[in-house]
């Protein structure tokens, strides 16, 4: 087995909300076309770290970082990097499904339209392709002009994934994407993640350890702003090195 190269890499990363340090000296490399899961108790900094990967925290007053995050070897916080370009490369799916109050079609092509793409045929093709990738096409192909808010929660979340796929990113960040969904919808999302990792680098935050075990190739455990341990998922779940990881995995705290 050849070693895959790393897609995203953080080095010596600190993050602050005002005076509060949310991340402490994070060093991690995330492998290309694989799933990396971030686990840890709430408030441990895993979501904050995820959101620094596509600079979603830029708009928060008082938020700042030190250190570096590299995507394909390029510093994403460098002065010449444009945030909108970065986010086309690094897509994101949120905890709660957040479809726009528009039609299903408008939701999927939104990212393309704001890039100024007007070609109807291209938009329609991309829409179909993205919805198929997100395993939603068969359920919605006859109601593309209906409001996205009328879909079920699980469908809405797959629509949000399709929306992210439409702009052809290479990385997809998922912030507890199934935490608001029922078990059946969750299973569908997990199957989808399996499919998507053939083409995409996926980083997923979850507080559900079984889920991390099911979907991820690598797992990183965060605790109080620190990256405690990062290893192959199998390794981590069977023989964790740090006692804190062990305690968390065995459910002593959470």
């Amino acid at each position: 087995m050849t070693k895959k190269q790393s897609k995203l890499e953080a080095s010596n990363l600190d993050a602050f909300y005002g005076d509060f340090q949310a991340l402490k000296n994070i060093n991690i490399a995330m492998e290309e076309k694989a799933v990396t899961a971030f686990i840890g108790p709430s408030g441990c900094g895993k979501s904050t770290f995820l959101r620094t990967l596509n600079r979603m925290n830029d708009y928060i007053d008082g938020f700042r970082i030190q250190g570096q995050i590299q995507l394909d070897g390029r510093d994403i916080y460098a002065a010449d990097v444009r945030v909108d370009e970065l986010r086309k490369e690094v897509g994101m799916v949120f905890q709660k499904p957040n479809p726009f109050p528009k039609t299903i079609y408008e939701n999927v092509v939104y990212g393309l339209k704001i890039q100024g793409i007007k070609d109807k045929k291209l938009l329609q093709e991309t829409c179909e392709k993205s919805l198929q990738q997100a395993a939603l096409w068969n359920e919605v192909k006859d109601k593309l002009d209906k409001s996205a808010l009328a879909l079920s929660g699980g469908q809405q979340q797959r629509l949000c994934i399709a929306r992210a796929l439409a702009i052809q990113p290479s990385v997809i960040l998922m912030d507890e994407p199934a935490s608001a969904l029922d078990p059946i919808s969750t299973a569908k999302i997990e199957d989808l993640i399996h499919e998507l990792k053939k083409d995409y680098t996926i980083v997923i935050v979850t507080h559900n350890m079984q889920q991390a075990g099911r979907v991820s190739d690598h797992t990183a455990f965060f605790y109080m702003g620190e990256l405690v341990e990062h290893a192959k998922t199998k390794t981590m779940f069977t023989s964790p090195k740090d006692t804190r990881t062990q305690n968390y995995i065995t459910g002593r705290f959470g």
Binding site: M56, G91, N98, P101, Y110, G111, R163
Partner: peptide, 15 residues
């Protein structure tokens, strides 16, 4: 809701 703005920003939309 905040989430609508996040969704839009995450797709590369400007402010």
């Amino acid at each position: 809701p905040r989430t609508i703005r996040d969704g839009s920003f995450a797709l590369g939309a400007s402010k």
